[in-house]
Nucleic acid binder design. Structure first.
Length: 433
DNA sequence: TCTGGGGTCCTAGGACCC
DNA sequence: TCTGGGGTCCTAGGACCC
């Protein structure tokens, strides 16, 4: 396996991930119909095979299942994302043992570049079965593996491995005959292709493109014309032309969202403002963890669209920050000032959220610790605060400008000396906590 | 009564500039 | 009365993903 010219991708995917995690710690859930529920136990975010067989759709509300729950004894579990994150890490660690080039695509999926593994594994299928065996043994999680020369095809191979028991959890397109692939592709709906969602699927069907094979055989220029470059790329990938490289390093997030549905309807501005402060705190923590600053915060609220008896209202607004910052207080006050403008009395609110936008690396931000450090007491406080910040960012990163009439700090950037400003209004205030 | 949360990329159109 | 052309940047919205 592993010819020189064509890359070979593997896609490893845990079956019914959240449900499988719960089962790993509670074997009595094995072979029972199980769903894992969203926040507030609202709707199904993961279903066991037994539940899927009953026709329960992804996102189905729990309270709609009452009959099925009675008839079949469906077990509903509240989600435990800490557990799932931990299990995910264990799986990814095992997979790194199979290839130095991995891309953790989502909490339960991982691409591997397995070029040149022919010296180790007789065939991709042998490797895939070994992965399945080892992951099951070490984590009690069942996985399926797909192999192909493009990521989109690897996803499709994985899909086939899951759906057709004949494949025993591993499907390899790289060694499959053209005829057999065609046979499969003619029987898979075009909507099952990675990158073809509900809208595009509907439009393709209307154009008489129903199956994977139909899309593969379509004219690339026509597809580009009608659907854009993304879908054209998908078509090429179906033909085995790899257009999507492995993204092995995770770039910092370009935006950070924090939002929640409320457990009950809220009407007062105070309660919602409280929630928004909490969301900002959570998002700002993520922001600092990836060493970013944000330049704007978007705040949004809306009523419950499912309550037809209620008057509906939804609104959002983006509030620019005067400087890019990771300071919780600045972001909160911006978010709340936006909230004040969009909040209207007299509605039943169900959900609110914030988005940190316009993110940038914080390598050259700067600020002041105190506006007035003339006194000796303040100078001491400044020095203590500097220690705190140094502990967080490391000695090398932080630069102290002065402890005279004013105390300023800045983050050293790699190739430039830090820029200073002496105008208080231009720099974030009071970074020290 | 009860219906999730967090991301990315692309594109069209407007503002602005020379 | 006639009323350029080309470029960049930003944003909102639409599509997709898990």
């Amino acid at each position: 396996m592993g010819t020189q010219s064509q890359p070979i991708f593997a896609l490893v995917d845990v079956n019914n991930f959240y449900v499988s995690c719960e089962r790993a710690f509670n074997p009595r859930l094995q072979n029972k119909p199980v769903v894992v529920l969203s926040n507030n136990d609202g709707c199904a975010v993961a279903r066991s095979a037994e539940v899927k067989a009953l026709g329960v759709k992804m996102g189905a509300p729990w309270f709609h299942m009452t009959d099925l729950i009675k008839q079949h004894g469906i077990i509903g579990l509240s989600s435990n994302y800490t557990l799932y994150g931990d299990m995910s890490n264990r799986v990814m660690t095992i997979l790194r043992g199979y290839s130095p080039h991995v891309e953790v695509y989502s909490i339960d999926e991982c691409f591997l570049n397995v070029d040149g593994m022919g010296g180790i594994w007789e065939t991709p299928t042998v490797m895939g079965q070994d992965i399945r065996k080892k992951v099951l043994k070490w984590t009690a999680l069942p996985v399926c593996v797909g192999f192909a020369t493009s990521k989109t095809l690897a996803k499709l191979a994985n899909h086939v491995a899951k759906k057709l028991p004949l494949f025993d959890g591993v499907c390899d397109f790289t060694t499959m005959s053209e005829a057999r692939m065609r046979w499969l592709f003619e029987r898979i709906d075009v909507g099952d292709v990675w990158g073809v969602g509900r809208r595009i699927s509907a439009r393709l069907h209307a154009m008489n493109i129903h199956t994977v094979q139909d899309l593969k055989d379509a004219s690339p220029s026509m597809i580009r014309q009608s659907f854009g470059v993304v879908t054209e790329r998908t078509l090429q990938e179906l033909r085995g032309v790899s257009c999507m490289a492995m993204d092995e390093v995770v770039p910092p997030r370009r935006e950070i969202i924090s939002s929640r549905s409320f457990g009950k309807l809220l009407t007062s501005a105070d309660e919602i403002a409280q929630a928004i402060s909490t969301y900002v705190a959570r998002a700002a923590e993520k922001l600092r963890n990836q060493r970013s600053v944000c330049g704007a915060v978007h705040v949004f609220i809306h009523t419950n669209p499912f309550r037809e008896q209620d008057r509906q209202y939804s609104n959002g607004m983006t509030v620019p920050l005067s400087v890019q910052t990771d300071d919780n207080r600045l972001i909160v006050s911006a978010a709340l000032s936006g909230f004040d403008l969009i909040f209207k009395e007299g509605y039943n609110y169900k959900k609110a959220g914030i988005v940190l936008m316009n993110l940038a690396s914080n390598t050259n931000i700067q600020g002041t610790l105190f506006n007035d450090s003339k006194t000796r007491a303040n100078s001491v406080a400044v020095m203590n605060a500097m220690d705190t910040i140094n502990q967080r960012y490391g000695q090398d990163v932080l630069h102290l400008a002065s402890t005279g009439l004013s105390a300023r700090w800045s983050m050293k950037s790699e190739n430039r000396s830090p820029a200073y400003t002496t105008r208080w209004e231009e720099i974030p205030t009071a970074y020290a906590r």
